[in-house]
Design a protein around this nucleic acid. Structure first.
Lengths: 317, 317
DNA sequence: ATAATTTGCGTAAGTAATTACGTAAATTAA
DNA sequence: TTAATTTACGTAATTACTTACGCAAATTAT
């Protein structure tokens, strides 16, 4: 068990299972000591039947938290051992009602003796421990029931992956850059709208359309692939238009849009701009939320060369 | 899980196992989230190999506390998945040395990221709990390692069973009594010594030999069977000789000898005796210990009609 | 040096559970 | 009332281990 102890909380699950298995082996020995021909695994099923006579298979299963199949098999075994007997339900003919036989009742008497002694023994163990294991386990169960481990770790995974995203300037001489810029933007435009002539012109020629005019195109690189784009095109001396903001559908959820947006704002500040402007569509809710989060405010009156634009926003730097 | 919680410490083992299983299911989800094609059960084996390159199967098994067969099978699976590779030992040709492949090393990098995040997550969980589960579990393990549950419960079982033993007077008209008196005493006399004429006379006729002379024969009854005997035979007006103290070999360990001895002493007091006397043999160590425990002291000079008698003891009431 | 024992590992079989799936009865919807 | 869905349960297959056992290499005893 040394391994599990050095691994600490990380291997808590395995450690618990292992300790549990050891305890169950001890239980087998104890049953033997008490002269009981009784399998450890029957214990919860047996107690459930002993408590409520004429339980059904599925009620027992639910009560003890095991599958109905497992209960069904165990009832069969216990039946063979002469401890329980079954009969079909009267009102509901699908049910299998289970009750103790007289032999089972004798076993129950012996079991009660064992449980009494075990209770005392466990109290002894408990008193030798500083902390109350059972309480600790029950509390732990409550905590991970409230919010499971996968859910808890998700946020950490996201920030970890987001940190791996690099923002780079589009290099017009790199084919992979040009291809990704086209692919990612055609993807979302075709999904929601129609590709317009201006789209084709800008996506095919990022150099002449953005960069040579004093603007820029930023790309998000993740795992050796380009997964996000955004562009700035000069409007006046101290303002530019943000556009072509797109994230690869396989890379959604990492917050890449936010990274790109923040990088664009930083670039704007670096270039000494006073204002960023953008046009988008009211159907693109995640985009609207992102722009709002970045600090953009809606502009009322505007006209656009794009037919899909029905919302305009600006950000004063 | 309600069942396990209401059962409390009695079902602690099952409860731990169940919680562990739930945690392991969560682990499977987490691996998937991290994009790892990795089975939960590989975890300890994988870490063992990652820590020490070129571990042997049995060293891994010992380290993680599983059977070497299990490790062998998992190494096979992981080998198939391309994570590890094996080679036969050079100095010891029986050994199978295991190390990570380059794919395994990549997996290890990802695993390290996961473990780092999991570490943080578990710290978060730990902080939400009042009591430290891991500490509690480790403490519990220590306590039951020091003295296991079967050992702890044994004493309680013994007193419970001893309380079921009834001491009764031999009834000469009851065949079962006479038969048991003979059987139990012949058993130990034949095992250690030789049956003497006086044995036969007394064992065949407990009425004329003991009871009609003012003495008595006590029997220990347990589970509807006679499992122990002892007799008192008058010597003088206020002293009697204790003899024929025997316990069925199947009922040893319950302390029946002590019960019989104490009952004999009580009878002696009730009859107003001043002294109990007995003869035994120095080879019968458990018997000597019992008599000493009951308060008998060795008598130096004595003569006995039994050839096996080489020790005499007395108790002043 | 030879024999006996121990050690390392793997195959086969067993165990205690599970999930997948099928059947029949009961319940709900149309 | 008929059809669709849900529920109760069992068989079969699967999983994640275990123990039993056997072989071969290494070590120890004679």
């Amino acid at each position: 068990m040394d391994f599990y102890r050095t691994m600490g909380y990380v291997a808590l699950g395995s450690y618990m299972r292992r300790l549990g298995e050891i305890s169950q082996q001890a239980s087998a020995q104890i049953y033997q000591m008490y002269g009981m021909e009784f399998e450890v695994k029957w214990f919860p099923v047996f107690l459930a039947i002993a408590e409520n006579e004429f339980e059904t298979v599925s009620k027992i299963a639910e009560y003890i938290g095991q599958s109905h199949v497992g209960v069904s098999l165990m009832v069969k075994e216990m039946s063979k051992a002469g401890l329980v007997e079954t009969q079909k339900g009267v009102t509901d003919k699908r049910e299998t009602l289970v009750k103790l036989t007289s032999k089972g009742q004798l076993m129950q008497l012996r079991m009660n003796e064992l449980l009494e002694d075990l209770q005392d023994t466990m109290t002894e163990v408990k008193n030798e421990c500083e902390t109350d294991v059972l309480r600790a386990l029950m509390e732990y169960e409550q905590v991970i029931l409230r919010k499971g481990l996968p859910e808890r770790i998700k946020a950490r995974l996201k920030t970890r992956e987001r940190n791996k995203v690099k923002i780079v300037h589009l290099d017009p001489t790199t084919d992979a850059h040009r291809a990704a810029f086209k692919r990612i933007n055609y993807e979302w435009i075709e999904k929601y709208f129609k590709v317009e002539p201006l789209d084709m012109e800008s996506l095919e020629n990022p150099d002449t359309f953005y960069i040579n005019k004093g603007g820029l195109v930023l790309l998000a690189e993740y795992q050796n692939a380009i997964v996000g784009t955004s562009a700035l095109k000069p409007m006046t001396a101290d303002s530019m238009e943000l556009s072509k903001m797109g994230v690869d559908s396989n890379a959604k959820g990492l917050g890449i849009g936010e990274l790109l947006g923040q990088a664009i704002i930083d670039e704007g500040k670096r270039l000494g701009l006073k204002r960023l402007y953008l046009e988008t569509n009211s159907r693109l809710l995640p985009a609207l939320n992102l722009y709002q989060k970045l600090g953009f405010k809606t502009v009322k009156d505007f006209s656009s060369p794009y037919s899909r634009a029905d919302v305009a926003m600006e950000l004063w730097l």
